[in-house]
Simulated scan of single mutants.
Amino acid sequence: MRRLASALLAFGLLVALPTTAFAHDVLERTDPADGTSVTKLPESVVLTFSEAPLTIGAQVVVTGPKGAASSGAPTITGRDVTQAIAPDSPGGDYTVSYRITSDDGHPVTGTFSFHAAIGLDGSTAAAGATVHVKPVSSADDGQSSLLVPILLTIVGTVVLLGIGGFLVLRGRQADRA
């Protein structure tokens, strides 16, 4: 009985330890990089995440001097999300907004920007102030997504400890009889 109780307690402690399995994907890097100036506008932007995102609900919107500059739907290859840029896009300031479904099913959103001196259409742009915005994920998304696993871990641990305690007490009563 004591061995069973010890095994249950050890299992409960393992379950209670926090893991990274519940963490959302994070944007690790972009090409072009956030806040940079590039000589020529690339034909696409690439967002690299910490884990391979799901294809469902993937949205990447590229906005430039003439407005929307995205061309087609984004493609996902491994951890990279690629969004093509329209071939008639001029040089200037660009903002990329994204909403990607994390591999745990939760949305990851953010924005970054860059400046292109020469557009895909060959036009040039005067160097202007580039808006520098850090990619962000909603704080509410992160907190609510961890609430359920944390509660399940606490409840599971309490149940396992209760079962272990019950078995230990039952074993002591059997030893007395």
Rank of each mutant, 00 (worst) to 15 (best):
G171K: 12
H115L: 06
S44W: 02
G92F: 03
L147M: 03
G128W: 01
T77N: 15
A58Q: 08
A174Y: 12
T130I: 04
F114A: 03
L13H: 14
R170S: 14
E28S: 07
V60T: 01
L9D: 13
S144I: 10
T48P: 02
L169Y: 12
L17D: 04
I118A: 05
G122H: 01
A5S: 12
F22T: 04
I56R: 08
A10R: 15
A16H: 10
D175E: 12
F112Y: 14
P18T: 03
M1F: 15
Y98N: 11
S44F: 07
G35Y: 08
A69C: 10
S71G: 06
V108T: 14
A84R: 01
E28P: 00
P42I: 08
K40H: 11
G110M: 08
V26G: 02
Y98W: 12
S145D: 04
Q173P: 02
G164A: 15
D31W: 08
G142T: 14
T157I: 02
I154D: 02
G142C: 09
A129L: 12
I163F: 06
V133D: 14
V81R: 04
G35D: 04
K134A: 15
A68K: 13
A86I: 00
D103Q: 14
R170Y: 13
G122L: 00
T39V: 01
T124F: 06
D80K: 08
I56E: 00
D121R: 08
K40V: 13
T19P: 07
L160D: 06
P65K: 02
G64I: 02
R79P: 06
D104I: 12
K66Y: 11
P135H: 13
V81H: 07
D34K: 10
Q173M: 10
D31V: 10
V136D: 15
G165R: 07
T77F: 12
P87F: 05
T36W: 03
K40Q: 12
S144C: 03
A84D: 08
T153N: 11
L169N: 14
